[in-house]
Nucleic acid binder design. Sequence first.
DNA 1: CAACCGTGGTA
DNA 2: TTACCAAGGTT
Length: 408
Amino acid sequence: MVVPNRQSSIANRKSKIENTSTPFKLTRLQTHLMNWPDSPALLAPLGPWFDLHRRDLPWRHGDLGRPHPNPYAVLVSELMLQQTQAATVIPYFERWMARFPDAAALSVASEDEVHKLWEGLGYYRRARYLQASAAHIATLGWPTDVDGLMELPGLGPYTAAAVASIAFQWPEPALDGNAFRVLARVLGLDGDPKHYAKRLRSWLRPALEKLGASRLTQSLMELGAMICSPAPKCLNCPLAVHCEARRSAATDRIPPIVQRRKPKESELMLLAVEAHGFWLLREPTQKGLLAGLWKWPALEAAFVVEADLAADSGLPYASHELYSWSGWTQVYTHRRELVSPFHLRLAQRFLAPKGFHWVPGAELDQLALGKRDQRLRELLKGTGTVPLRGPSASWLLDHLRRDAALAG
DNA sequence: CAACCGTGGTA
DNA sequence: TTACCAAGGTT
């Protein structure tokens, strides 16, 4: 497939990235660029270093001087690599490409299967965006410039530029966390390097044109991942001679650490309710945490206190059995959950509330679950339950049905 | 624009 | 154990 290089500029985009520059800002920009070393000269050592030390990643093509033979593979890898380390991505990428070898195959897949192949990788929105992008490409073909790539769902400034440079050799500067850290240190930037994004892109473009877009983009990120890491290994760095942060012993201050909000804590009971070989699962939601995935029913654990007070009310659930395991802490980006898992076995099924579904045990493994719910699914396969230590079975069931009624 | 979206590695 | 943070993007 031949894709023309339109030489469009991310920095001058009207939409999504930044506003067009005013004459005043352009003047400041030019002034500032005068103080930075020439980018092709400064970054030239990256090429030879990369040829010697580059990792052999399954989405990485041998000849970086040409457009990538499979742009779809680049797209898949870049979506998977968002906020995710390469080592984690590799097995997911292999399975994905085996099952969905091209955009057409992905575009006709079921959403459940798409999520199943993404299971455990996190940020599940990316899987849906990738499928939507594949549908666009299968129908209309590949975009012909970086602005077109930006229109694909799930592609922002970084990913659009990464696909442009790695898949098509368009000279679009792709700035990820690695590139920002490397450039902040080499140039000795003060403050958050993201504030320099626009100037850095203008400054980088000549280097992309001279050293090769794919080669420079990947070598910059590879250096950030392997050498110029948060705790840098400057002795092995091909840019050390001209690095401002190293010269001034400031690599621990550049770039500055951005502090995060403390995660919110919550406590919940996670229920595997079983009846005659069927399991009660929450159907996938469209929004919120773990959207698109199946979930075990859960109850706010504040109820546990009530349960202790209520004790067993003597309701007719004599044939029910309740098992539990020791709990754990489930960590998300901005949340911490204290999880208490239970297995409740019922003598008979009841009508599944709205938003719930009785799943045959044989199909449990086919559902896409988040790590928290995968963990309970695995517990059910073992025999390591401990005697009941928690609310009564009747109490749990009553609250589950009440909770489901409210949710529905 | 701050909040939100998962999970695993690392010091 | 805690906190940072990773080939970020969307709302």
